[in-house]
C-alpha cells in the first residue's frame, strides 16, 4: 500500500521509515514524501491511482494542509478516493471540525502516536 506523507519538516521522513521498518521490509507499506502541498499535488498528478493514503500536516508554509485536502477532494473524486488523514500540532475542536468539513477521513495530533496510527492503518492494508 502506497502512503504519501506531506510535511514541511524533513525529519519526519526517517521517523516514518524507521517506525514502519518491518512493514516496509515485508512490502506491506511503501512510503513517499512531499515537503509541501504543491509538491504533493505534483506527485499525485502522476501517481494518484497508486496512492491509497495521504497523511498531511495542516500547518505548512505556502499551501496549507486544508488547501491540499480541498484540492484532492476536488481533483481526485473518482472512486476509490484516497484516504486522507490530517495531522496537526493544534489539536483543537475548531481544526478538527474544519478538517472533517473539508472531507478528511481522520484527524491526528502531533506528537504522532505511531501505535495508534498502526491500528488505524490495519483495516486499510489489504
Amino acid at each position: 500500500m502506497k502512503i504519501l506523507v506531506v510535511d514541511d519538516e524533513a525529519d519526519v521522513q526517517p521517523l516514518f521509515l524507521q517506525r514502519f521498518r518491518k512493514e516496509i521490509r515485508n512490502h506491506e507499506l511503501e512510503f513517499n514524501f512531499a515537503l509541501s502541498g504543491e509538491e504533493a499535488l505534483d506527485y499525485l498528478k502522476e501517481k494518484h491511482s497508486e496512492v491509497v493514503l495521504i497523511l498531511s500536516d495542516i500547518n505548512m508554509p505556502g499551501m496549507s494542509g486544508f488547501d491540499l485536502l480541498t484540492r484532492i477532494r476536488n481533483d481526485y473524486g473518482i472512486p476509490p478516493p484516497p484516504v486522507v488523514m490530517m495531522i496537526t500540532a493544534y489539536g483543537d475542536e475548531e481544526s478538527y471540525q474544519q478538517a472533517m468539513d473539508k472531507g478528511a477521513n481522520d484527524f491526528l495530533t502531533k506528537p504522532l502516536d505511531f501505535n495508534l496510527l498502526k491500528e488505524k492503518l490495519k483495516p486499510l492494508i489489504v
Binding site: 519538516e9 521517523l15 524507521q18 517506525r19 521498518r21 500540532a89 493544534y90 506528537p111 505511531f114
Partner: peptide, 21 residues
Amino acid sequence: AHEIQNPLNFVNNFSEVSMEL
C-alpha cells in the same frame, strides 16, 4: 510553544524509535 513543541516531538519520537531499533 508551537516552535518548541515541534523539536520536542522529534526528540521524543526519535528516542522512542531508537529504543525499538
